[in-house]
């Protein structure tokens, strides 16, 4: 059942896209008519503030995190598995140390 619905939607990708854009546009228009009895923030005064907030938040999170990742944090995903390799190849350096004769 679900597979049929998804297939039906996937076959009409342009329609889905048009519908989504229509919803987004309706949200922006609808914002002008929503009652706000106690405005206490910019979002209650500027129509479409939260739409912009959501879009910019998304862009900032993706671009900012990716930048952090490529600049500092990314490693190949076998990074920690290599530790075992390191441990196996490292020489064990225990030596028997001679001590003075005791009587």
């Amino acid at each position: 059942m679900i597979v049929q619905i998804i297939t039906w939607l996937r076959d009409r990708m342009m329609l889905v896209k048009a519908f989504c854009i229509a919803v987004l546009a309706l949200l922006l228009i609808g914002d002008l008519f929503v009652p706000r009895p106690h405005p206490h923030f910019l979002g209650d005064i500027i129509p479409g503030f939260w739409a912009g907030f959501g879009f910019i938040a998304c862009a900032v999170i993706i671009i900012g995190s990716k930048w952090l990742g490529t600049a500092f944090l990314f490693r190949p995903d076998t990074y920690y598995d290599d530790i075992e390799q390191d441990r196996k190849t490292s020489p064990s350096q225990q030596k028997n140390q001679s001590t003075g004769e005791m009587k």
Partner: peptide, 11 residues
């Protein structure tokens, strides 16, 4: 809805 759907647009 504005925050979420515009996040989706960004995605």
């Amino acid at each position: 809805y504005q925050i979420l759907l515009f996040t989706m647009l960004g995605f």
